[in-house]
Write a protein that binds this DNA or RNA. Sequence first.
RNA 1: GUCCCCAUCGUCUAGCCCGGUCAGGACACCACCCUUUCACGGUGAGAACCGGGGUUCGAAUCCCCGUGGGGACGCCA
Length: 464
Amino acid sequence: MSPVRVRFAPSPTGFFHIGSARTALFNWLYARHTGGTFILRIEDTDQARNREEYLRLIYDSLTWLGLDWDEGPNPDGAGERGHFGPYRQSQRSALYTGYKHRLLETGRAYEKDGAVWFRLLGERYRVFDDHRQKEVEKVKGAPVVINDLIRGRVERREDEDFVIFRSDGNPVFHFVNVVDDITMQVSHVIRGEDHLSNTSKHVLLYEGFGVTPPAFAHIPLILKSPEMGQGKMSKRDRGALIEEYQQRRFLPEALVNYLSQLGWNPGDDREKMPLADIIRLFDLPGVNQSNARFDARKLAHLNMTYLLEQPAEKFAALARAYFTTQPNGAAALADAAYFQKVLALAQPKIKSIDELGAYTGYFFTDEFATDPKVREKVMAKGDPQARLAELIAALPALDFSSDIAVEAGLKALAESHGLGFGDYQAVARLAVSGTNAGPSLTALFRVLGQDRVLARLQRLQAQA
RNA sequence: GUCCCCAUCGUCUAGCCCGGUCAGGACACCACCCUUUCACGGUGAGAACCGGGGUUCGAAUCCCCGUGGGGACGCCA
């Protein structure tokens, strides 16, 4: 059997979105599963829309996801690797011209209106096209049969000659795609189902060149989640761009894990699984045929489970990188030991790194916001002023050496007034953090320290 | 409009190929437990075979027709 060679062939005409990422992932997984080669090819034949920054984004996104390519431009953009290059279509024009002449010479292509057209074989007739509202020439030829690895046998009839070189002299997608796959010896074309109806053109082109087509595998599309509306996910949809997850500092392994299971599954109940297992179990016949809707909540949940199991040092590194980019991040990073203690409280509670700012804000500044609703509720119940006064009176003598000590001290305080711990909790929490959610009160006290806690209790007392 | 693909809980899906298990898991939602808050975790509940015809002793599973969803119909990729 010939070696597996697959490619991901994005065009740098826009942001890198979730659907592209999954197509790249499935190609990459298949290459790694089979011990084959993963090629990155840049389809930059649309000169009007290509942008250098989008190219950079492709490299960065793939690298961030951990989808390394064996052949293609180097990730830093300088030079390339592999023996089938160049890997940017804009640099392959001589090759395309050669292949164009082959078709011209055999009569499978002809010039018209300054463009070059691929000639279909069969009986010709003219008919009015409803969709385009004009009369066109059609060809009645044999249907093209595609034996798709995921869809099975698909039959489609191509009935019109189509342009392979524009009148501006540039080749079009269908043509370069096929020529590149031939010359790069691509064995399996794994791409979105939106290309299924293009495939008949491609197969015809292969036949025109006298080349056996590669195997095709058309994967299902990613649709918008129900609350986002109908149709396939587009670049404009919230959560559709890889960049967003990168900025929100999702763990790439969580995103890869989630994406791998959108249209594929290991055949059992496992969902969270190490990449090595995904690679081992992934195969084309296991890919689903129906489109999948993107579920941001499930992704967030998966990210949380990954976050939970990160070693403290790794979590700290992620947190540092995050705070470095935050407006008030310097304050958080000022005291490394204190920072570490705060992170220990936050790690088991957040779903993604970007929640860190909101979750830990009051640890790093005294000017934190107080939730007005929480405040109203807390101050309306029981006798918060009395509890505050008791807390303030007891605080100088409170032992802050450990959670246990803080807890014992607070319990003793409560008992001395014939009350329970719970009678102090809400108001104390409001005073030190401005909210009603967060780490345990004892941890909150201990990490914040005696001075901060006292000052914040007094401040609330004065305000109320 | 024409062509192509698809169809199991709200969502991702197992089961389908090789008909016969209370149609299983996960996310979300709800309840309870754990918890001195909020989460996490645990337990439990509700929740699906799109409809109609066949084939068969028996259909989520095989076939056909509807319906619904998606995609493609560019000198874009």
